Simulated scan of single mutants.
Amino acid sequence: MMTEGKGMAPAVSADDRLEDRDTQKRSTLTIAGLRVGVLIMALLLWQFVAGAFDIEFFVSKPTEIWAQLQDWITSGYLLDNVGITLQATLYGFLLGAATGIVMGFVLGLIPLLGRLLDPFITAIYSLPKLALAPLFVLWFGIDLEMKVVLTAVIVFFLVFWNTYTGVRETDEELMDVLRVMGAKRRDMIRKVVLPGSLTYIYVGLKLAIPYALVGAVVGELIASNRGIGYILMSAAGAFNTAGIMAALVVLMLIATIMNALLNLTEVYVMRWKRAGR
């Protein structure tokens, strides 16, 4: 009869794993239910306070915001403008993220180049990105290209710095072991550097999502007659607080959906981490 060795961790049975999954599922459902409860309580409190203290002009009411959203949806006004903002946000996000990841890897893998360009990149990064918007209007006009470029510039630096840090934080001892074993540079990049920097990359991408929306909306506020930014500007000009709040709700929903989709890609791309546990 075999006995468990000293210091050896006990084997985890299939039943234990299933029990852990069930516990995790129940915990997830409980948290989701609590979140819904908190949201409902906050909306009810908002509705009550706005009516009781007669401050609807300043904060509106959830019921008025919902009525405004319904009106925009049924007329098609919201869908048309959301499509414009989404287009600028997604194009700018993808362009900025792709460029940031590539540049982060290049400068991270070539230390001399990284040290050479670091002060220049830092100097450009220190500029308020939104202050570049008038210059982009001059260069690209007021069409979609200007919003895409502005969004891409904002996203680029967030993704670049995280990717660059992730590449520079690669385990040097592991790299040395692979060199001794005769691994080629491309193998080390594919099997060590890339997996090790993925966490940093996804942190940068998650940080970049709300800023991508900021870039697109600010571009629309500066020069556009369509998009969520234009809706915000029109509602503010008409002192339509419900319209402003409704536009902000739409922006929050877009950011939440984009984050959820990014989380799904992270789960798929980094499934090897869970498999190794």
Results as ranks from 00 to 15, higher is better:
Phe57Ser: 12
Ser60Val: 08
Ser60Cys: 08
Thr63Leu: 15
Trp66Gln: 06
Ala67Gln: 14
Ala67Trp: 04
Leu69Asp: 09
Trp72Glu: 03
Ile73Lys: 02
Thr74His: 06
Leu79His: 06
Val82Asp: 05
Leu86Gly: 07
Leu90Ile: 15
Gly92Val: 15
Phe93Glu: 00
Leu94Gln: 07
Leu95His: 00
Leu95Ile: 11
Leu95Tyr: 01
Gly96Asp: 07
Val102Leu: 07
Val102Phe: 06
Gly104Arg: 14
Gly104Thr: 13
Val106His: 00
Val106Asn: 00
Leu107Pro: 01
Gly108Met: 12
Leu109Ser: 03
Leu112Glu: 13
Gly114Trp: 01
Leu116Ile: 12
Leu117Ala: 04
Asp118Val: 03
Asp118Met: 05
Phe120Gly: 06
Thr122Glu: 13
Thr122Cys: 04
Ala123Gly: 03
Ile124Met: 09
Tyr125Val: 04
Leu127Gly: 01
Leu130Arg: 04
Ala131Met: 10
Phe136Pro: 15
Phe136Ser: 07
Val137Ala: 00
Leu138Val: 15
Phe140Asp: 13
Ile142Gln: 11
Ile142Ser: 11
Ile142Tyr: 12
Ile142Lys: 10
Leu144Ala: 06
Lys147Asp: 07
Val148Lys: 08
Val149Ala: 02
Ala152Val: 08
Val153Lys: 02
Ile154Ala: 07
Val155Cys: 04
Val155Arg: 09
Phe156Arg: 14
Phe156Gln: 14
Phe160Gln: 01
Asn162His: 04
Tyr164Phe: 11
Gly166Thr: 08
Gly166Asp: 11
Thr170Lys: 01
Thr170Pro: 00
Asp171Lys: 05
Glu172Asn: 07
Met175Trp: 01
Met175Thr: 11
Val177Phe: 09
Met181Ser: 05
Arg186Asp: 10
Asp187Lys: 05
Val193Cys: 00
